[in-house]
Computed example of a mutant assay.
Amino acid sequence: MIRSIVFICFLFCFIGNTFGQTENVVRINFLNPSLTIERVLSPKTTFEAGVGFGYNGSYPDLAFASESGIQYIFAGFVDLQSRYYYNLEKRQNKGKKIGSNSGNFFALRMLYTGPDVASNFIRFDNNSFAVGPTWGIQRAYGKFNLAYSMGPIYYFNTSGSHNWFPLILEINFGYNLGR
């Protein structure tokens, strides 16, 4: 499994051409507070690493159910993504801004959630992981950034519990610090 993920990340590095260049970006996200660094791998691919503290839900097979229908957790997280931007030259040809990696993308995402500070359910293990392909949109509006992605995930913890979930959503609103 891990070898397959690494292979796909390296494959994304070599896809692309010289049109529509990606950029190195450092960003602060507000909705799920984090610091994100997006580094260029090739003209159309980047690797994004984010570290923060935020909210998440419960994965069904990794926790005891709470009494309420809505389950929440506040915990530290690490979010890693290898992104392939597929429409940069199309946006550039239409005269749209492609700076700060403003475009549509496919990604391979890995999310680690650490021990919680507050939650309304009990997890079997303090460490959980989610891995899967995503499709997303990222747009820069001056120094501000809006990103949205979604896709299926395979989730697991270090105790051996695991399953898949058909759709996970991510939305971030941030401020680009620089390149």
Rank of each mutant, 00 (worst) to 15 (best):
L41P: 03
I168T: 12
G76P: 14
R39F: 00
Y154D: 00
K44T: 00
Y155R: 04
Y55T: 12
P60D: 09
P33H: 09
N163R: 11
T113Y: 05
N126P: 14
L35W: 07
G76T: 08
F64G: 05
H162Q: 15
P33R: 09
A75D: 08
L146S: 08
Y72W: 11
E67L: 09
C9P: 05
F10Q: 09
T18G: 02
L88C: 09
G16E: 05
I137Y: 13
L11Y: 10
Y175E: 03
S128Q: 14
L108F: 07
I98A: 01
Q81F: 01
N93W: 06
G174I: 08
R179C: 02
F30W: 12
V25M: 10
Y85G: 06
G76S: 11
S4Q: 14
F144A: 06
F77S: 04
F106V: 15
V25D: 00
G151E: 08
Y59G: 03
G99W: 02
N120D: 13
S159R: 10
N93C: 02
F47L: 10
Y72L: 03
N93V: 08
N163L: 06
E23N: 13
K96Y: 14
D61M: 09
N24R: 13
I98Q: 06
L11F: 15
Y85T: 03
S58T: 08
F14P: 00
N24V: 03
G151P: 11
F47G: 00
I98F: 04
G20R: 06
L80G: 01
I122L: 14
N126L: 07
S4E: 13
S119Q: 13
F121G: 03
N93S: 14
D79F: 03
M150L: 15
A147V: 05
Y155N: 07
L88S: 05
D116F: 09
Q92D: 13
P33N: 11
V131C: 06
F12A: 08
K143F: 04
G160C: 03
Y86Q: 02
F106A: 12
